[in-house]
Design a protein around this nucleic acid. Structure first.
Length: 315
RNA sequence: AAUCGGGUUUUGAGAGC
């Protein structure tokens, strides 16, 4: 049975689903009964192939046939539904299974909470978070962060701050990701100043800002029109030798374009390209478009050639 | 363990409706 499971899993992982199912049939006809592990693999692979409904059917069959619910199969199934934006259905399934006394672990709860947030059902996510606590499953830093992110994305930053305070008071210790989420939340509701204040407090909290922190703030500064502040921050990062990533460059480049600083944008573009990055075609196109509209068609043409050489394809 | 699984930053334009 272990051999069969290993083979089926291997086939599923290399996307040879049809072949995997053939082996499954073979094992049945040879009188080798599939076990929980076999079904875990199959349910998961159906989900990953976008066939959640078939996965659900298979899951139901195993529940009837074996009269037990395997938590791994079930969480694979819930994952599949959540990934597809079907978190509400996942929660319905979760509620059914909950009645049989199966309480999911903190990761599965987090998956569901994130799924709900992704489809904008933030209140349901909050409810589920409370249920989780009531059921004696302690939310870890990721669970809190996911919920925090959901609140921020729904522009409910005040509630996010409350949640952070709750967390500080009697939850897991927030990490840099938690704060990055909140920083982004502030930025997105045009409270960049609050975000910058929070940045200063990070070191007091014993946390080190990472590139994601700075990217968030750079973008926030640009988008709220504080281009000078943004460029100052960028300079600061350059001089202290921070390791920029492609995302930093995209933010700065589009920030410069947005401001209409085409000369700087073009200069910046070349400096990025010299570092060996190829900016996304989207940004190349923006840059070209802005240049053309500013009447600098010649420059745009030159840039276009350069872009072609660098294998980024502006459309 | 032969099997699933969770968090943060960027992502263009035009046309049409």
């Amino acid at each position: 049975i272990v051999t069969y499971n290993t083979i089926i899993d291997g086939l599923c992982k290399s996307k040879r689903l049809d072949k995997a199912w053939m082996i499954f049939e073979t094992m049945n006809s040879m009188g080798v009964n599939p076990d929980a592990c076999t079904y875990n693999v199959l349910v998961d692979s159906l989900c990953k192939a976008g066939k959640e409904d078939e996965a659900l059917k298979l899951f139901e069959q195993t529940v009837e046939g074996r009269r037990t619910i395997n938590p791994i199969t079930f969480s694979a199934l819930l994952n599949g539904f959540c990934r597809k934006g079907r978190a509400d259905e996942a929660v319905r399934l979760h509620n059914l299974v909950l009645r049989t006394g199966h309480v999911p672990d903190h990761i599965t709860y987090t998956t569901l909470i994130k799924g709900l947030c992704n489809i904008g059902k933030t209140d349901d996510a909050l409810k589920l978070f409370k249920e989780m606590v009531q059921r004696g499953v302690s939310p870890d830093v990721v669970a809190y962060s996911v919920l925090l992110s959901g609140l921020c994305k729904a522009s409910r930053v005040d509630e996010a701050v409350q949640l952070l305070n709750l967390m500080i008071e009697k939850g897991p210790v927030p990490d840099i990701v938690t704060y990055n989420i909140l920083l982004d939340g502030f930025c997105k509701v045009q409270k960049v100043d609050q975000a910058m204040d929070l940045l200063k407090k990070l070191s007091e909290l014993g946390l080190t800002a990472d590139m994601c922190t700075y990217n968030t703030l750079l973008d926030g500064l640009f988008k709220s029109g504080k281009c000078t502040d943004a460029m100052n921050l960028y300079q600061e990062l350059t001089t202290n030798g921070s390791q920029m990533d492609i995302i930093t460059y995209r933010i700065v480049l589009s920030g410069l374009c947005e401001r209409g600083d085409l000369d700087d944008a073009v200069k910046f573009f070349y400096s990025v390209v010299r570092k060996g990055y190829s900016p996304k075609s989207a940004i190349c196109s923006t840059l070209l478009d802005k240049l053309c509209k500013a009447g600098k068609v010649d420059e745009a043409a030159k840039l276009y050639e350069e872009m072609q050489r660098r294998i980024c394809v502006p459309t």
